[in-house]
Design a protein around this nucleic acid. Sequence first.
RNA 1: GGAGAGGUGCCAGAGUGGUCGAAUGGGUCUCACUGCUAAUGAGUUGACCUGGGAAACCGGGUCCGAGGGUUCAAAUCCCUCCCUCUCCGCCA
Length: 438
Amino acid sequence: MLDIRLIREDLDKVKKALATRGVESGVLDELWNIDHQARTVSTQRDNLRAEINSISKEVAKLMRSGDSESAKDLREKSRSIGEELSALESLAAELDAQRHDALLKIPNIPSEDAPIGVSEADNVVSRWWSLQKGMQNGSDIELPDYADYQKKPHWEIGSELKILDLERAAKISGSMFAMFRGLGATLERALTSLALDAHSDAFEEIRPPTLVRSATMVSTGHLPKFEEDAYHLERDDLYAIPTAEVPLTSLAKDEILPEDDLPVRLTAFTACFRREAGSAGRDTRGLLRLHEFDKVEILAYTTPDQAADMHKELLHRAEDLLQQLGLTYRVLDLCTADLGNSSKRTFDLEAYSPGTGLWLEVSSVSWFGDYQARRANIRFRNADSGQIEYVHTLNGSALAWARIWAVLVETYRQIDGSVAIPEVLRPYMRNLEKIPSP
RNA sequence: GGAGAGGUGCCAGAGUGGUCGAAUGGGUCUCACUGCUAAUGAGUUGACCUGGGAAACCGGGUCCGAGGGUUCAAAUCCCUCCCUCUCCGCCA
């Protein structure tokens, strides 16, 4: 969430910054008013409390000296102040709650570097890469010459090679669930091992819980605004995580870290669960959009000064994996309208799927500033000043496997219908060179 | 799931209604002293909200797992919930 002081002291600046992502200024005016009232009321409340506190000390003194008559009078006086106080207390609590709720629903202020836009059409393709052309700047993409045998959608390849069984997944769990079989399942596991090993030089590997409390979902900004998108187990009031970002961000919740510990780098492999409400029927074939998919996440806590470099590092690590796998991809600099609620700046990585002709989002690398750290109350002690400050949080997928799996089997499909296994994956796949066609 | 014990500051741990934001010990940092990689002594050491101040800092309020209640007054009494530990039950 935003620092209320920002809204209190520079309302116009906040309005202007949030207008670029479609927040109406009335919402901010209302919050400003609530804050103003809340402070007025809490000051009055504190003054009454101070009075009662001092009377209570008086009473104690009188009791000790045996003057119970005067003590009785004071008690009466205090009691009547107490009645006045309780009205103010509930008003103050009500205003506090209103302020808090409003603050939780206001998105982060975008970075000044994020492109301004009104829809996802305004996202900027900043560079692209292919095995043939290497890294290229700009949005003028030359796709490799994919052969006809590569232009077969992954769901057809999957059932042909018996490595993807969507029909039975649907029988078991419904549509938009996947089931990998045989070498298809091995391939998923190989991708996971490849990625975790790739980050092991600097990242602590974590295997977090995948069911979390609602407070944990609030910390990353997934609640209260996006309740509809999450699976909720009502009986136990637990949420299935939509990404490992959720438990990893809350790992340091309510902690004050020594500056020497920063940056903290964490990586985790988990399943991710998304209801995808409202998206049925649209780009949902095969593995394009699933209720459950596997992903390796990389995440960091940094000082504000370290954040920019870390953002580059995370992006580089995600891109490096795509390059190792030899997949054509492009880097999108998300515009203000398409930026996630909690993010200040996000780069999406989209891999090209020759079988469907679509660019598939396989990673999203974001810098959140202190927005999540305020929600989760994650701070650090500045080694020089001794002051306590909020950390910055950043994270990215590296990578999301279902879509990678799809792009991979299409890209590496051979003329004989088999799928070649990229060299980096072979050590994780019993040194097999291909997934054979039956 | 059942029975019992417990959750206090950076750590350990005392505190059963007022003099408690909290003893004591350890750690931290500062100073002093001792000619040595340390001992001793003195001091220091929480977070949050809010008002004042350029700032150092000063005032008020809140916080002893969380939320409610009783009372003039709650770490201390009552209720609900969460968590930890021990035993039993169940179980990958």
